[in-house]
């Protein structure tokens, strides 16, 4: 299932400068595997050694933080929007 993935600046050197790429998969984990296949090096920027989401990476699926969904197992469907965003500590 193709989904759109928004890529933040620090990761664009893996995507030939592109801020938006497409990937396929049934879950966020699948999508990350597919991203790695298309853009080698991306996975280790997103996941730590144990395969979990890095502490300072947030992934949003259609605007919702996947930590509120089913984390890396969150299901994705055709046309979904996935955003990769470095954690920003606010201060309101």
């Amino acid at each position: 299932m193709p989904v759109r993935v928004r890529v933040p600046t620090p990761l664009r050197r893996f995507t030939a400068g592109s801020g938006e790429v497409s990937a396929v998969g049934d879950s966020i984990r699948d999508v990350i595997e597919d991203l790695e296949h298309r853009h080698p090096g991306l996975r280790e920027r997103l996941l730590d050694e144990s395969g979990e989401l890095r502490r300072f990476v947030n992934i949003y699926l259609n605007g919702d933080d996947i930590r509120f969904l089913d984390r890396l197992s969150s299901r994705v469907k055709d046309g979904d929007d996935v955003s990769i965003v470095p954690a920003i500590a606010g201060g309101k």
């Binding site: 933040p8 949003y60 933080d65 955003s83 920003i88 500590a89 606010g90 201060g91 309101k92």
Partner: peptide, 23 residues
């Protein structure tokens, strides 16, 4: 949108417009 939406947009604006976002 909510505060998270705003924060995400701001990091994109910071990249594109070259402004100083304090946080």
């Amino acid at each position: 949108g909510n505060y998270d939406d705003v924060n995400r947009l701001c990091s994109e604006i910071a990249d594109k417009y070259g402004w100083a976002f304090v946080n």
